[in-house]
Amino acid sequence: MKKLLITLTAFALIALAACGGSGDSNGEGSSDNGSSEDKGTITMGVTPWTSTVPPTKIAKLIIEDMGYTIEETQADVSSIFMGLSRGDIDVFMDSWMPVHQNYFDEYEDSIESTSISYEDASSGLVVPTYVEGIETTADLEGKEDMFGNEIYGIEEGASATEEIDNFIEANNLDFEQVNSSEGGMIAEAQRKISNEEPVIFYGWRPHTMFNEFDLKVIEDESGEFFESSTIHVVTNNQVSEDHSDVYDFLSNWSIPIEDVEEMIVKIENGQNEEEVAQEWIDNNQDKVDEMLGN
């Protein structure tokens, strides 16, 4: 029995090694210098948000191919910016402007926005499509009690939270914002939506909530609130000096928002994150070459 186990283990190990090897060789055929020497480690910040994963994984695969080792540090966004400012983290692929402006003000001496990943990521208050008669923010007036006078938002202290409070005040609405976290908010929405109760909460793209539920974004006619976001790649100041090739690549970085959403859906459906990223690279080889300056 024991022998059998050992034999099996040995076979498994060999199979694993073979897989790993073949995976490497067909990784990314077109990169020129086939570099395998270790140029050092690049640390990437990863937030728990769904939107962070696809760009981070794509950039990871490409930078690894340049000969670097990638380390991923999981943390919440404020810790990631703190890490960026101290140089513990080199790259963060998912900084939302103007939502994260407060971090830029705080750390302007040590971090820089390197490139724009994608634009026009819309955000705002959303309701399920079965809620009728609510199309613009003006429709909300006098219908607050339909939603139990509550708007569900994300974390306390987030810029979006402040904006929703300002929005309620500016329009004299009888709403109270209930703050929790992304997960808490989505769970509450899911609870209400499964009973087909009216619910209003904060939504943004790219996010799978738009794939999971039938939602509509309430239009803000005044145009003062909920401007769409621009997603930036942020790096520590040292990166441009120490790892100029990585910096050059990141400063050419861009990805269409539709691609990100598509990848998020694939990942949430259980597909392997790096496989999804590799797929994107394979399908967009021309873009990758452009970013690499080839």
Partner: peptide, 17 residues
């Protein structure tokens, strides 16, 4: 998960550094 109180104050401080 949306309970008001001192915890919310601490969470605010975290997201605002």
């Amino acid at each position: 998960i949306g309970a008001p109180g001192l915890g919310a104050t601490v969470l605010t401080s975290i997201s605002r550094v």
